[in-house]
């Protein structure tokens, strides 16, 4: 049997339980373990490695639904969507959608919102480094150039608007966090706007006021300075001051 077929048969068994018996035909039975049990060790190991990874990606969801539910859901997710990239950090975005379709979560879809936040944290952490603009160079611009200025958030920025308080729920699950909200006091009806971004070696996660939220969203849609002035009027200098000091604005372009 060529190597190709052997490997296809074995890897199928890792992600399709009903292929175990077929793959076991390739394997010697030795000692107290049957050949099917031996293939099973690899199925368990592969699943265990990926479960560990998913648990570390979605630690708050893990707490929210408990290890048993999380484990079962993660295992069936892996079988449905095995990894296709050697870069492990690429894996697991689809878990959010998988949770959203889970029959047992249809009355608790706010948990899926928390999963979105956790994936955004992961994605932001792995976003590549960028070079910030030198804002001192704004001084030399003509009035026409000033009107055409556009500003960018860090490439790692994720703006998440949620109908549930995902930031508070996330905080409530952090150990040793001062003044964290108590789980019992969280009001699921409270909407929250959250910004996540990476600044060098640190990941920032914060809620935004409605004004800041609207401002950053408009920035991200690449509105020009004159459009911003139109929309935010007298508030604009203040909005920019806050955003600059918080590190929410990273660069500008003049074209």
């Amino acid at each position: 049997m060529p190597l190709l077929e052997l490997q296809q048969s074995l890897i199928s068994a890792l992600f399709q339980r009903d292929q175990l018996a077929e793959a076991a035909k390739l394997v010697k039975a030795q000692g107290s373990l049957s050949s099917e049990q031996r293939v099973g060790i690899y199925r368990n190991s592969t699943h265990g490695i990926l479960l560990d990874y998913l648990e570390s990606l979605y630690p708050v969801c893990l707490d929210l639904v408990g290890t048993e539910f999380f484990g079962r859901t993660a295992h069936s997710f892996m079988d449905q969507a095995p990894p296709t990239s050697p870069f492990l950090a690429d894996y697991g975005a689809g878990f959010v959608t998988y949770l959203a379709e889970h029959p047992a979560l249809q009355d608790m879809l706010w948990i899926v919102e928390v999963a979105k936040l956790e994936w955004a944290r992961h994605a932001a952490w792995h976003t590549v480094n960028q070079v910030a603009s030198d804002f001192a160079q704004l001084e030399g611009l003509s009035a026409a150039q000033q009107a055409e200025l556009r500003f960018q958030l860090p490439a790692s920025a994720h703006l998440i608007s949620s109908s549930t308080p995902i930031h508070s729920i996330w905080l409530a699950h952090q150990e040793e966090y001062p003044d964290k909200p108590r789980l019992e006091e969280i009001d699921l009806q409270e909407a929250q706007q959250v910004l996540i971004f990476r600044e060098q070696r640190r990941l920032h996660q914060t809620t935004l006021s409605a004004d800041d939220w609207a401002f950053l969203n408009t920035l991200q849609q690449q509105a020009t300075m004159s459009e911003l002035a139109e929309q935010f009027a007298e508030q604009l200098p203040w909005l920019f001051s806050v955003a600059m000091q918080e590190g929410w604005i990273y660069s500008f372009t003049t074209d």
């Binding site: 190597l3 052997l6 490997q7 890897i11 190991s45 490695i49 990894p83 296709t84």
Partner: peptide
């Protein structure tokens, strides 16, 4: 080997030990 069929196991899988 770790991959086949376009799938990646992220686990270290043994080879059949043959001349081929």
């Amino acid at each position: 080997w770790t991959s086949a069929h376009g799938w990646v196991s992220h686990d270290l899988l043994p080879l059949p030990y043959t001349e081929e």
